[in-house]
């Protein structure tokens, strides 16, 4: 049994982790740079964070993003769980191939195509573009990711648990709520987190489906970044990275504790 790192493995792990984390680390360090020139170190300062919080445009974009993320992740998780259940359990044989195709296709579909097609749909049904259309778009791809996460747990779920619940007096619906749901709950939480993160992260689909007055944070960042690197964006990125890292670490600790219990 391997109990130690071989030098080759240690080297590739070190280089690999450096490759993955150095760019992010540099970004974080330079967010505390006094200088306006992002590549020249001018001393430690937190002034760009102050600037950030005084920037109305960023704040309102953040608020839009948060609302889109919360609503779309929640609906996407609900629909995704139902979809996973239909795929794995309910044996919807007719149209099952088409259904599973529609679930898996958005996972590999280039975002430009998904974005374009949704936009053209909204236009052709005469729907005003704005925060609602972004939410609808994010629900659509979010539910596909959510359903993949939930169905991988459902596949491993012993179907006789549900039968046992029925045998002990549950209707199929009661069996779902008293047995299936608690058992797959961790996967549902993971699915929500994934849908939420993807929504927060999305630039391309939001750009296609948004309208006047609905600018998400990635759209705002993108328009700034096209003009060049700015310390304010570094500060914003650092905050986002911080939030996400804390969230992921907390989630994994909670998962570990649940596993121990």
């Amino acid at each position: 049994m391997t109990n130690r790192f071989s030098w080759f493995n240690a080297t590739s792990l070190t280089l690999g982790m450096a490759f993955l984390y150095l760019p992010i680390l540099i970004l974080v360090i330079y967010s505390f740079n006094e200088s306006k020139l992002v590549t020249v170190w001018g001393g430690f300062s937190t002034k760009w964070y102050g600037e950030l919080f005084r920037n109305e445009a960023f704040l309102s974009a953040a608020w839009v993003t948060l609302r889109v993320g919360l609503i779309s992740a929640t609906v996407a998780t609900l629909l995704g769980t139902l979809a996973a259940y239909a795929l794995v359990r309910a044996g919807m044989l007719k149209g099952r191939t088409l259904f599973s195709g529609m679930i898996y296709a958005p996972l590999v579909m280039p975002e430009v195509i998904t974005g374009l097609s949704l936009l053209l749909l909204f236009i052709s049904i005469g729907m005003d573009r704005g925060i609602t259309t972004i939410i609808l778009a994010h629900i659509t791809f979010g539910m596909c990711f959510a359903s993949v996460v939930v169905s991988s747990r459902l596949v491993a779920f012993d179907a006789s648990l549900e039968e046992a619940a029925c045998d002990l007096g549950c209707t199929p619906v009661q069996a779902f709520f008293s047995v299936t749901l608690p058992v797959i709950a961790p996967a549902i939480v993971a699915a929500w987190l994934l849908a939420f993160t993807l929504s927060l992260d999305d630039l391309v689909i939001a750009s296609f489906t948004s309208g006047p007055g609905a600018t998400t944070l990635p759209m705002k960042i993108y328009s700034q970044v096209r003009l060049g690197v700015t310390p304010e964006i570094n500060a914003l990125s650092t905050l986002l990275i911080g939030f996400v890292s804390i969230g992921v670490i907390l989630a994994s600790l909670a998962g570990k504790r649940a596993a121990v219990e």
Binding site: D158, S160, L161, E163, A164, D167, V179, P182, V183
Partner: peptide
């Protein structure tokens, strides 16, 4: 009628 499952199916 109650059943004891092969996998035990304990919750």
């Amino acid at each position: 009628v109650n059943m004891m499952f092969q996998s035990y199916a304990l919750f």
